[in-house]
Amino acid sequence: MRENPYVPYPALLKRSYFESDDFSLKTFEFELLDGNRIDYIPGQFCEISVFGKGEAPFGIASSPTEGHILKFTVNKAGLVTTALHEAEEGSILGIRGPLGNGYPVEKFRGKNVLIVGGGFAFTTLRSLLVYLLNSRSDYEKITVIYGARTPGLLLYREELFEWEKRDDLKVILTVDREFPGWEKQVGFVPQVLERTAPSSKDCYAVVCGPPIMIKFTLPVLEKLGFKPEMVYTSLEKRMKCGIGKCGRCNIGPKYICKDGPVFSLAQLAELPEDY
């Protein structure tokens, strides 16, 4: 990051495409200009600037092992995301980062890893998965459980189907209800997790998804024997500066942007319910 942490790097929007079949999610691939680069780890985020509209924070969906392209998948919701969705390929935008702590990938070395995702929160989980697969032999069993409302809302579908075929990785995909042509799992993520019942032995779990999914997934993990210090999740709150100054994203004395966004359940247990 720059010495002036408020100044974004100019970034070229190389490619953008719809990620979901309802046109609400788009993936953006950026290349930093002027030879700049961002060294990041999975789970970190950036502030993307649409100059004149403002900035908004997004988890990095690419993995640092994939080269210099930065990838984000963004839901069209507010002022900045709408402008971002309208940005044409070839536009120059701004990127500030990396921000936040990221997943504790060093701890995962030599351990089993369970990735549980829901809806469009799979972005940094993709980053993590690609990162782990890049040095597959450093980790033991990797299990991915990912669900969305409909097949068309699963992010990175083609990659998911490829990963499904691998025998060094277990990928379980699910949608909320039956769909014509869908022959994989049907059911909510917590239920599928319960049915799959991955072993908690020597296993870290990383959970990202909508609050309601998290709420029902955590008790299942507990039942499966996952200890709070072995379960990580990534939090979101309204953010502006991304560096723990502007004030608004605090949970108790911690700032999501600076001390998070990744927290273990053990860490969260120490914090007030302020999110």
Binding site: F51, E55, C241, C246
Partner: peptide, 17 residues
């Protein structure tokens, strides 16, 4: 008290944060 907001102001072809 130091909390602040960051906002962009847009003009034609230029602006400020």
């Amino acid at each position: 008290c130091y909390c602040f907001d960051i906002q962009d102001v847009e003009r034609t072809n230029w602006g400020y944060r």
